[in-house]
Nucleic acid binder design. Structure first.
Lengths: 150, 150
DNA sequence: GAATTTTAGGTTGTGCACAATATAAAATGT
DNA sequence: ACATTTTATATTGTGCACAACCTAAAATTC
């Protein structure tokens, strides 16, 4: 009996990548009911996390450039530009050009966007409960997956 | 100095979920150049994996119902119906109603779709090389992530 | 200082992803 | 048998995700 490795590797059940793909969709599904109350999608929530954190390390009174958000979230402008326009039309952020570099678009939190942080504080804890997995394991897993992000 | 845990948990860098989300997108980006040659996207490739595997465990001469693919890939019909129509218009699959249950749509491989499997055999190996991570670690990681898929 | 290159962002087009809704066939209850 | 419910799939609408391309401003080169 010959054992065809290439055949085994084509089986869905043996694929690490599919598990990551499926888990990623499951995670955003877990976030959805929590974020609905804040009027955010999961990618929008990630953008707000970046802005909330940038807010604290001041010195960027005028906001952060889109490029900064692109790098933090590893997303293209083709994804972020329309997403940021939606956040702007929802009143959570402002978009304005930098004076010193007219190419650069600076994103800043509106008062509403800043206030939303308080309501978001309970999100990570609630999600952790739903995952129902020891926090220490998650931390260890995160380290390993980060290695794959290279 | 008081330490605000809710503030720490809102930091992007501390979030397990973001790593999964970013890794999932990175993985599909790694697949893209490999699958371009086959004329498949990553989700289409996953559907073909299901069909290729179902082909072997015969008894489904007429094909597998969409519901079967939905369950295997954990995707909704709203995602799969248009995707399957694209695969059909690309000549890789056929879609036909079951005689015994007119609601059920049976998906079967065309000769071209079946032949494509031979060219797909090299994909998992090539991807593994690009990930540049010990296979044993990946297997162990997969087990843990599967636990989270519940 | 004019020409070239790089950089920052925007636009367009294709393809997921999923909630909400619709439709019709099959199964079930009475 | 007929009404009700469940099941299998399709449709519509919104929002990512990214490749390919475009524009204009800034930096660099000559």
């Amino acid at each position: 009996m010959s054992f065809d490795f290439s055949d085994e590797m084509l089986k869905l059940d043996n694929q690490f990548c599919f598990v990551v793909y499926a888990l990623s969709r499951k995670i955003t599904a877990l976030y959805r009911p929590l974020l609905d109350g804040l009027g955010l999608t999961y990618p929008q929530y990630l953008v707000m996390l970046v802005l909330w954190q940038a807010e604290q390390s001041k010195g960027n009174e005028k906001g952060v450039p889109i490029k900064f958000i692109c790098e933090k979230l590893m997303l293209e402008t083709g994804t972020l530009t329309p997403l940021l326009k939606r956040l702007e039309s929802n009143g959570l952020i402002q978009r304005q050009r930098a004076q010193n570099d007219e190419r650069s678009m600076l994103i800043s939190l509106s008062p509403e966007g800043l206030q939303l942080k308080d309501r978001a504080r309970e999100v990570p804890g609630k999600l952790l409960c739903q995952m129902d997995y020891p926090l220490q394991n998650l931390v260890a897993l995160k380290q390993q997956l980060q290695g794959l992000l290279g």
